[in-house]
Amino acid sequence: MTTAIEFQNIQTGYGKKEILHNVSVQAERGKITGIVGPNGSGKSTLVKTLFGIVPCKSGAIFLDGKNLQSFSRKDVARKLGYVGQDTSVVFDFSVEDIIGMALYHQKKTDLPSKERIRLAMEELNILEFSGRSIQTLSGGERKLVFLARAVAQGADTIILDEPTNHLDIYHQIFLLNYLKRSGKTILLVIHDLRLAAHYCDHLFLMQDGRVASSGIPEHVLTPKNAKQVFGISGKISYLPDGTRDFCMDFQ
């Protein structure tokens, strides 16, 4: 198994406040890796270090074993697709305009841009949004458009920050099934522990800027961690088809 993304002892913060203390996270090629943890535990911050949005104070990031520093920003954009948490758009762009932005820093291919945009939309089943303004779409619909952009980018790794936010249950499952089927390396920041347990191959549980636990979901979403980190009682159980589920006690 090869590591597509490796965060090694990342330390960072905003101003004087340190958010991440010595965080190490790995995403295996072709697998779905989830980062879970309570609000404010540093999940999004970690992901943002990949794009230089938040600079690392110490530690290193490796893409396919090579130091991130050795890539230009455009190279990183070609390798990694990103779907951020906030998909609201202040200005009026058409859906095609947004997806087309994926191609600005890509190398030209034989396929014309229009066709690449259309294919990405087809893949996510959003051809019906064609020609519409991004501002007329709901939060969940916008999320799919931004995922289509990551797909159009052609990157073999996609990073998603809380992708299921604002999505109805049908689209949550649609999106995660799509990611699973795609065979790409996926790094997710995810709040929903049931979805995390079901879809992720590996989990990293973060608490107060540290990795509290990591491994397969059975090792991470233990009753003890659920209690200590989230303050709930819950445990992994198995659905009739043998897949994982996370059961919570709603007390």
């Binding site: 230089g52 920003r73 455009k74 954009a77 697709g81 990103y82 951020g84 758009v89 762009f93 932005m101």
Partner: peptide
């Protein structure tokens, strides 16, 4: 115009 995070992820400094 889409936002700083997005622009950075698209390869813009």
């Amino acid at each position: 115009m889409i936002g700083d995070d997005d622009a950075a992820a698209m390869g813009l400094h």
